[in-house]
Design a protein around this nucleic acid. Sequence first.
DNA 1: CGCGCTGTTGACTTAACTCAATAGTAGTGG
DNA 2: CCACTACTATTGAGTTAAGTCAACAGCGCG
Lengths: 275, 275
Amino acid sequence: MREQSAVPLQAVLRAMSAIHCIHRNSISPSRAACADCGVLAWCAPAGLDPQEMDRVENLIRHRLPVKRNGYLYRTGAALESLHAIHTGSFKTTILDDDGREQVTGFHMPGELMGLDAIGAERHMCNAIALEDSIVCGIPFGGFERLVREIPRFQKHFHRLMSSEITRSQEIMLLLGSMHAEERLAVFLLNLSKQYAESNCSATQFSLRMTREDIGSHLGLTFETVSRALSSLQRERLIRVQNKDIEIKDLPGLKQFVGGYDVRHSRTKHVEFQAA
Amino acid sequence: MREQSAVPLQAVLRAMSAIHCIHRNSISPSRAACADCGVLAWCAPAGLDPQEMDRVENLIRHRLPVKRNGYLYRTGAALESLHAIHTGSFKTTILDDDGREQVTGFHMPGELMGLDAIGAERHMCNAIALEDSIVCGIPFGGFERLVREIPRFQKHFHRLMSSEITRSQEIMLLLGSMHAEERLAVFLLNLSKQYAESNCSATQFSLRMTREDIGSHLGLTFETVSRALSSLQRERLIRVQNKDIEIKDLPGLKQFVGGYDVRHSRTKHVEFQAA
DNA sequence: CGCGCTGTTGACTTAACTCAATAGTAGTGG
DNA sequence: CCACTACTATTGAGTTAAGTCAACAGCGCG
């Protein structure tokens, strides 16, 4: 009922994305150093000493631009560097033998990409820029050495790898047991959380990817994505206008995800007993 | 047409599972050391020197039994040890806030479980034995030290973590874009490969988990699992009798997975260009 | 031996897919 | 700057794969 006047949402979001709200400190593009960079979540294991920080900085190839729709790397390519996203966003996709393609994730500033390549030292997915973006490259050899020599760095790195596993498993749960609208709701809530962590609005943001990308990621067709979004809007949980999203009822949206019937939990298990 | 006589398959499989074909060397349960253990895939980074191997051995708590349906660990429990499966098998499940449960994986001898717990130092899933099993515990603190101090060990560990990510992503692809029968086919092919790697038959084996577990893992109901198996049998690709599976046409099964129409790949992308 | 659990199969329902028409956007080049 | 074309998104109608509910069979454990 209480609709904001028709124009502002779109305009506000346009403006927000223009100033790239992710940056806490303003950036001087000329000097390219981590200290200037608002996005050091990945390389800031809560306090390296200045000397260690220096080693990290010297390793990094700062500020590589990637154009929209450009590949940062391709499946099968040898792993040379890990990449931290500085500005912009990416999707990662896998393409299996028989041509099936799936978006495995969307990646935002501060994230480290390429972890899945470490096993085979070969990328297992494509990374494609959703918009003109800037990344920092971290040569893997040097990276591994730092991991070995700086315990705090090791811990941090292991944490990253592990949470990557956890994240995938959450997606598995989504794909395996949620309805279309729930999947969309979870997807939006995840985005919301990510934006919040980047000091952006948790309730108003603009999608960087197409409905088709979303569908591919959530295991749905793009028509179903579109319908589900419309439906969530009809239920007054969100407001959609093309790429622009406003979450109108955050608690409601969360409840919507949780509020379905449990499938079947007639499992009964025995406690762990050693020896 | 050329059916084997009705009885043998089941009997053969029974026998095979009885002698636990995984073990290349016979085991003397009294002496519990890695050298005696056929299953050191996880801890054998292709040649540690004897001294290093000693450090590993001293760390490990050998041969802990877990009863069928027993929990090895639970979601939320603090990470104390990683666990390598010595004999038996496990499923891991996640349970989200609203009670949805999903089997995230099945785990066989030689596998290292608990990697997803490293991020939060807290288990993110339940591990439940599918049959009476034996595991080895590796206290995480000591493990981290070894990882830091033995480069080959580090490499190996990173490889494991990374392939865990890759594995999850393959499941995502399965859940996101395959039909019920294809999912089952992939599932069986994966099992087949695992068994082959354990020097077991790649074409005859016995499922350790229920249809419901399989369904939960593949995002299907157990009825659909049952129907899909029957259907694959009707197409003469496999033979099913309760828990016992025979793959009658391995190439055919592989082709079956690949042989579907590609969904939509009208993507066109720009090459990566630095600077 | 009988009760539980596990698996199979059938009939019906439904959520999501497919196909198709149309509209709105954004990027390009004249 | 506008017009043109591509792409992207929405919506409807009809189809289908998988879910649900239910009956029943087999096996296995206590």
